[in-house]
Amino acid sequence: MTAVDRLLTRESGPAPRADARRNLERLVVAARSAIADTGVAVTAQEIAQRAGVGKGTFYRRVPSLEALLQAVLEEVLEEGIAAADRALADPDPWNGFRDFAATYVRLRAESCGVNEALGGTGACDLDATITTLREGLRTLVERAQSSGSLRTDVTWQDVAFALAGVATDPHTIGLRADDDQWNRNLRIVLDGLTIRY
Rank of each mutant, 00 (worst) to 15 (best):
D85N: 14
A48G: 09
P170F: 09
S64V: 09
A84Q: 00
T9I: 09
D178T: 07
G52E: 05
V154W: 06
A41Q: 04
A89P: 08
W182K: 03
R32D: 03
D191H: 10
C124S: 13
R60A: 12
T139P: 03
A20G: 12
R108W: 03
L190E: 12
D180W: 10
Y59W: 08
A20R: 08
L193T: 08
L175T: 13
L186S: 01
A83L: 06
V105A: 02
V40Q: 09
Q157E: 10
A41K: 05
E25C: 13
N115H: 07
R26A: 15
A84E: 02
A82D: 05
A164Q: 12
D178R: 04
D127G: 13
L88R: 04
I188M: 12
V28Y: 06
S146A: 12
G148E: 10
N23R: 11
I81E: 06
P16K: 09
I173Q: 13
V72N: 02
R134C: 10
A167M: 00
P170W: 05
W156A: 08
S33F: 05
L69V: 03
I47A: 01
A18I: 08
A15D: 06
A177S: 15
A67R: 02
G52N: 06
A36Q: 12
A20I: 09
R17T: 14
A123C: 08
I195L: 12
D90R: 01
Q145V: 09
A102M: 05
A71F: 01
A128Y: 04
A41W: 08
T2V: 12
V42E: 01
R21F: 03
G54L: 10
P91K: 06
Q45V: 15
R187H: 05
R10I: 06
E25F: 04
N95F: 10
D178I: 01
R106W: 03
G113H: 01
I35C: 03
W156H: 10
A123V: 12
S111Y: 02
A36W: 05
A44D: 07
A18N: 07
S64F: 09
E66I: 11
D179A: 13
D179Q: 15
R187C: 04
D127F: 09
A48M: 08
T168I: 07
D85T: 15
S149D: 13
I130F: 07
D158W: 11
G174V: 07
T155I: 12
G119Y: 02
P93V: 00
G52F: 15
G113Y: 00
A162G: 09
V76G: 00
G120M: 10
Q45M: 14
S149E: 08
P14F: 06
